[in-house]
Design a protein around this nucleic acid. Structure first.
Length: 554
RNA sequence: AGUCCGAUUGUGUAACGGUAGCACAACAGACUCUGACUCUGUUUGUCUUGGUUCGAAUCCAGGUCGGACUACCA
């Protein structure tokens, strides 16, 4: 073991500096703050690994806090899925908290602000507020209600709380500077009236704080030491600090990192919701989705996702990660952990002409050559199913599989020599005929032959049937959000191909949802949640790398 | 246009004033009862112009390019 140190990312550097200077008495407290208005995706995984990882690494704690300040979009279903996904990823929060639990405290913060003359009730319409906001080049204009007295503001704000006004009639604004170059500091709205049922507080409130007056305040209440968010909130930081200063509350500090972008993927919750609602995918956990629930169902192991997040790093520049890196991490994990089985996806019959009609062999096949964990029994007989692509009547020079006169090893069984094939009227191969070499029996080979190719097979008489769902990338282009027109125009129609009947070896009959396998030479597959003892269904997680396919493509 | 961020090979990410390294991808080869895995090797990089310095990817200044911001969303 070398003493090579893993370099720190910029946030770890900040934390270590704070620790060294005892900024918070050696305390590290982070939080993961999802809004319960959608399912978690791989981008969230990066934030989860960062926040929980920091807490773990520096002996700190990490809270799960639901940022539930917008009752019209938030639901309990999302709360539940978020908790499930975080735990599945392998993390456990210290406390489960809700911004809605702080509504009373946050309301009092607003009152304090009014008392300081730092907030006022504005009767302007949303349109009027937008119109007087100014622009990047023009300063904004003061609202005619900006100079109301503290007493009047206090009374009006109390009336807002007492449901005296309809939605949108009044809003509470911070009183900062309508000419500020940062548009967010031009008297931002901090409380709006919303007569809506909240998933936790019910009908207790009819006014709710906005993000800028809820998130930072929650951080302070919890005494979060490092409040980590994505780059788009960078402009909010001055506001975040302004409120802390005005209110004199715990000085949490905000740090921003670049969110994850993945090729051939969209990551915004708005777009993902659209895919679900408009039926482009079947659900949030459709295996084509970049959601954690989708990836789980597809068969991605949580370790692989964590390792991926570790590999991509954390920085402040915009990035676009190759999907192939995620797939590499998935294969790397699955290669070590999943049992090998034989499944024929596109079958053609192979008949061993010199093998007796009624004879059978039972072979012991290795389950996993990478991390040996025993063998399983695989039955063999005269008629087998093999992949159609493993035979060519006229083969190129570097083709190692079956062709008239050529020899291949049937994995874990015998070497066979191809004698020829039968075809139908359209010229399609219907049967391949071979002879086998009895002395080439696997594990006991005295034939002295070495063959270049090994193919997988399933005994026709023992084969079971299953449905297989072949998944591929959801989009045809690397960056669907950056293309002309609607991102949905770039959906890959081949992202799901269903093979209703493939042949599987008997060993698989006990597969239960969530079980992962390597289908030898084909890829990694996972028993779907729809799979039953009656009808087995497998999802393709990811293919194996295929040097031959690459060669053929040239 | 104003403010704020950022810029290291195809993609990410290190190097914290002193040898530009690592991973993925690509390519070539070895090995193989998975054309997988593994192993070996190869190609490609400091946005630009100045300055500071014995020495700059790193510090400073100007430029260029990219991104973000003008929701009663988060």
């Amino acid at each position: 073991m070398t003493t090579e140190e893993k370099s720190l990312n910029f946030i770890e550097e900040i934390v270590e500096k704070d620790l060294a200077e005892s900024t918070h008495g050696g305390r590290v407290l982070t939080r993961f703050p999802p809004e319960p208005n959608g399912y978690l995706h791989i981008g969230h995984a990066k934030a989860i690994c960062l926040n929980f990882g920091l807490a773990k690494k520096y002996n700190g704690r990490c809270n799960l806090r639901f940022d539930d300040t917008n009752p019209t979009t938030e639901e309990t279903e999302y709360v539940d899925s978020i908790k499930t996904d975080i735990q599945w990823l392998g993390f456990q929060w210290d406390e489960e908290l809700y911004t809605s639990d702080y509504f009373e405290k946050i309301y009092n913060f607003a009152v304090a602000l009014i008392n300081k003359g730092c907030a006022y009730v504005d009767d302007s319409t949303p349109e009027e507020i937008a119109a007087t906001k100014g622009s990047t080049t023009e300063p904004g204009k003061n609202s005619p209600y900006r100079d109301r007295t503290v007493e009047e503001n206090l009374r009006l704000f109390a009336e807002m709380k007492e449901a005296k006004y309809e939605d949108g009639v009044k809003v509470l604004r911070a009183r900062i500077d309508m000419a500020h170059p940062n548009l967010l500091l031009r008297d931002p709205a901090i409380y709006r009236i919303k007569h809506a049922h909240h998933h936790r507080t019910g009908d207790t409130w009819c006014l709710y704080p906005l993000y800028d007056f809820a998130h930072g305040q929650s951080d302070s209440i919890e005494e979060i030491t490092h409040s980590i968010c994505t780059l788009e909130f960078i402009h909010h930081r001055p506001l975040y600090n302004w409120f802390i200063e005005q209110l004199g509350i715990f000085p949490s500090r905000q740090y921003e990192f670049a969110r994850l972008n993945l090729t051939y993927t969209v990551m915004s919750k708005r777009k993902l919701l659209k895919l679900v609602n408009e039926g482009y995918v079947t659900s949030w956990d459709d295996p084509r989705m970049p959601t954690l629930s989708g990836m789980r169902r597809r068969g991605y192991p949580p370790e692989a996702i964590r390792n991926f997040c570790d590999t991509i790093g954390v920085a402040r520049r915009e990035n676009m990660i190759d999907l192939s890196l995620l797939e590499f991490c998935v294969r790397e994990n699955l290669n070590k952990t999943s049992d090998r089985v034989m499944v024929v996806l596109d079958p053609v019959k192979l008949i061993i002409t010199n093998y007796p009609e009624d004879a059978e062999d039972i072979f012991d096949a290795e389950n996993n050559p990478e991390t040996p964990n025993g063998t399983r029994q695989v039955p063999f007989s005269r008629e087998l199913w093999i992949e159609r692509e493993d035979f060519m009547e006229v083969a190129p020079k570097k083709y190692f599989r079956l062709a008239p006169g050529k020899l291949v090893r049937l994995k874990s069984a015998y070497i066979v020599q191809c004698e020829g094939c039968l075809k139908d009227d359209n010229g399609n191969v219907t049967e391949i005929h071979c002879t086998y070499l009895p002395e080439s029996k696997s594990g006991n080979d005295t034939s002295g032959l070495t063959v270049k190719g090994t193919i997988h097979w399933v005994s026709a008489k023992h084969a079971l049937k299953a449905e297989v769902r072949l998944y591929d990338r959801l989009f045809k282009v690397e960056d669907p959000s950056n293309e002309e027109g609607d991102f949905k125009d770039y959906i890959n129609p081949g992202a799901l191909e269903v093979l209703p009947e493939v042949y599987i070896e008997p060993f698989l009959k006990d597969a239960v949802p969530g079980n992962r396998y390597q289908f030898l030479r084909k890829g990694y597959y996972c028993a779907d949640k729809d799979s039953t003892g009656e009808k087995l269904i497998f999802n393709r997680t990811v293919t194996l790398k295929d040097a031959w396919a690459k060669e053929m493509a040239k």
